[in-house]
């Protein structure tokens, strides 16, 4: 039986891992490759690396980092951050990334989703959506939350699926960094509307949050950052607890 996945996320800035609260107040969280190896040994099912560096040298630095990560780990990993063209995707996949995560560029140019999935297949394309609940509507935001759009989370996820996205990574900005649990109601609604895997992100703080996101939110995978980096939750322990709750995981 297919298992639910636990995915540590590493936010990368200038080659280091960082973590903030509600997208602000970034703190250093260590060397990305060391952290990645630690997570693999602890039982992570996949990894996500989001590059939040904004410099011209960025692409070169990122592709070198991706190459170094791929040489050290033997589980799938996704790379995201500022991917805006087929050639960006090409460089990352050639250097060893398994999937790319596209956010803002897909909203500015939805055709990019079709282009990537036609050339490389849906399986390598994750569409990341940052959304915030504003007056009972889930509104999509850009630029790490700095820019508001007119798009609704659910409409955009449906369109992304139609255009060829292989997975949706939904981050609830209301929950991100709060450690109060995932946005399970929105996740459940999303799971009824689309038929591609959903990665839940934003809000993990306790082991029961993961139980809830799979049981109530019906997510296919749960992503978290600081609880894993700072050893607040061991992935191995977490998976044992999930198994005890009859949630199918790889142990």
């Amino acid at each position: 039986m297919l298992t639910k996945r636990i995915i540590p996320c590493l936010d990368i800035k200038n080659g280091r891992t960082v973590k903030g609260v509600n997208f602000l107040n970034l703190k250093d969280a260590g060397d990305p490759i060391e952290l990645a190896v630690k997570h693999v040994d602890d039982g992570a099912d996949e990894l996500v690396f989001l590059d939040i560096t904004a410099t011209e040298q960025k692409r070169k630095t990122l592709s070198r980092l991706v190459y170094n990560i791929a040489s050290k780990i033997n589980i799938p990993f996704t790379v995201g951050g500022g991917i805006s063209s087929i050639s960006d995707v090409d460089i990352l996949l050639k250097n060893g990334a398994d999937k790319v995560s596209v956010n803002s560029s897909a909203i500015k140019n939805p055709n990019l989703i079709n282009e990537i999935s036609e050339k490389y297949g849906s399986q390598c394309l994750v569409i990341a959506i940052d959304a915030k609940k504003v007056n009972s509507n889930w509104i999509v935001h850009l630029m790490g939350g700095k820019t508001i759009t007119e798009l609704n989370l659910f409409d955009w996820a449906i369109e992304a699926e139609k255009r060829g996205a292989g997975e949706i990574l939904f981050t609830s900005m209301n929950n991100d960094g709060t450690k109060d649990g995932y946005a399970n109601k929105a996740l459940l609604r999303l799971s009824k509307l689309i038929n591609i895997p959903i990665i839940a992100s934003g809000g993990a703080g306790e082991i029961y949050h993961f139980i809830d996101v799979f049981k109530q939110g019906k997510a296919d995978a749960a992503l978290a950052a600081s609880v894993f980096h700072y050893n607040e939750i061991s992935i191995n322990e977490l998976k044992k607890k999930l198994k005890a709750e009859k949630i199918n995981v790889r142990l």
């Binding site: 039986m1 639910k4 996945r5 099912d45 997975e167 038929n195 591609i196 895997p197 296919d220 995978a221």
Partner: peptide, 13 residues
């Protein structure tokens, strides 16, 4: 089939 999420993505036995 459409009864399951496609693609199948993840770890299986």
């Amino acid at each position: 089939s459409e009864k399951v999420k496609v693609p199948q993505m993840g770890w299986n036995t």
